[in-house]
Nucleic acid binder design. Structure first.
Length: 216
DNA sequence: AGCAAGATTAGC
DNA sequence: CTAATCTTGCTA
């Protein structure tokens, strides 16, 4: 366990902010899962926000059920659910007091530690694709329904602070949903090799914006 | 009790 | 583009 990727977790207060703010600010941070003596860690490069009030795609939109209960708070916990009967998806709960149930889906990371374990979980995948896509993230990190409701401020899970990405953040629409599909609630680090799906139009818009600020 | 849909993925 | 695979939550 190297100190470089096993520092202090972000303060619990971090998770008590509006969900869109957290979805952006999670980019660049280090997600850690300690499996036995093996530290698994990745740099978060792609997230999606889900909120219950105006977002029909949110699992919490139609109210509380046994499955989505942890989405209703407190914030700073893991919401894990089974997807398509085969995969798991991992969310960070961001529900504030008296606010709508909300969470951030972690869609992709760059592997930082525990690559051997991840390769075993994901035989055949390139290293850059080990944590590419929400189902693959859970597979590679050994996360399943048993981790649902776990705190991100206690072992064996944590998110650590890390320098903000220097690359721009691309803002675009979410993947794999049919309702509220137009909301620009997906965020990813421009140029990362580990993003699950790029949006060339959104990237082109950013480049135009940069040109106008700092012409070549 | 039955059934349609799903925050996905890998492979053809 | 489609199958795989199974749980959830809604409808009857």
């Amino acid at each position: 366990v190297t100190a470089a990727v096993w520092g202090p977790p972000v303060p619990a207060a971090f998770y008590d902010q509006p969900v869109l703010e957290i979805a952006r600010r999670l980019l660049g941070k280090t997600f850690c899962h300690l499996v036995g003596a093996t530290l698994l860690a990745g740099r978060i490069v792609e997230t999606e926000a889900y909120a219950s009030d105006i977002d029909e795609a949110s699992h919490a939109y139609r109210g509380r059920t046994p499955r989505n209960a942890v989405m209703f708070g407190p914030p700073g916990h893991l919401y894990v659910y089974r997807s398509y009967g085969i995969h798991h998806c991992l969310n960070v709960v961001t529900t504030q007091v008296n606010g709508p149930a909300s969470a951030v889906l972690i869609r992709a990371m760059e592997p930082l530690a525990g690559l051997e374990y991840m390769r075993r979980q994901r035989t055949g995948a390139r290293d850059s694709a080990l944590l590419c896509g929400p189902g693959n993230v859970c597979r590679a990190l050994g996360i399943d329904l048993r981790r649902n409701g776990y705190s991100l401020s206690e072992d064996p899970l944590r998110i650590e602070d890390a320098p903000k990405p220097t690359a721009p953040i691309v803002v675009t629409t979410r993947i794999g949903i049919s309702r509220s599909a137009e909301l620009p609630w997906r965020f990813y680090v421009h140029g990362s090799a580990c993003v699950s799906r790029r949006d060339r139009q959104a990237e082109a818009a950013i480049e135009r914006q940069q040109d106008s600020v700092a012409p070549a």
